[in-house]
């Protein structure tokens, strides 16, 4: 099996696993109970405050991770 075939198989299997996992998750209804707040995001956009902070802005952060 060549290098390219191995890469292809890894990509296809990872995609298949993602879709199967997601289908099982939606069938079991867990995603409906889980809210966005409790979901752990590995990668996410930073908050606007972090990008555009100006000294003197209110420090009261009501959005928890």
């Amino acid at each position: 099996m060549t290098h390219t075939m191995i890469i292809w198989c890894i990509m296809a299997s990872s995609l298949l696993c993602t879709i199967i996992f997601r289908t099982v998750e939606s069938q079991s209804g867990k995603s409906a109970k889980r809210t966005r707040r409790h979901r752990l995001h590995l990668i996410e956009f930073g908050k606007e405050k972090e990008i555009f902070y100006i000294p003197g802005d209110c420090d009261d952060d009501t959005e928890d991770l």
């Binding site: 060549t2 390219t4 075939m5 292809w8 990509m11 296809a12 995609l15």
Partner: peptide, 13 residues
């Protein structure tokens, strides 16, 4: 990305 990669099976295999 994934559609193109999967459809490359024709070339690879």
């Amino acid at each position: 990305f994934f559609s193109a990669s999967l459809s490359a099976a024709g070339h690879i295999f």
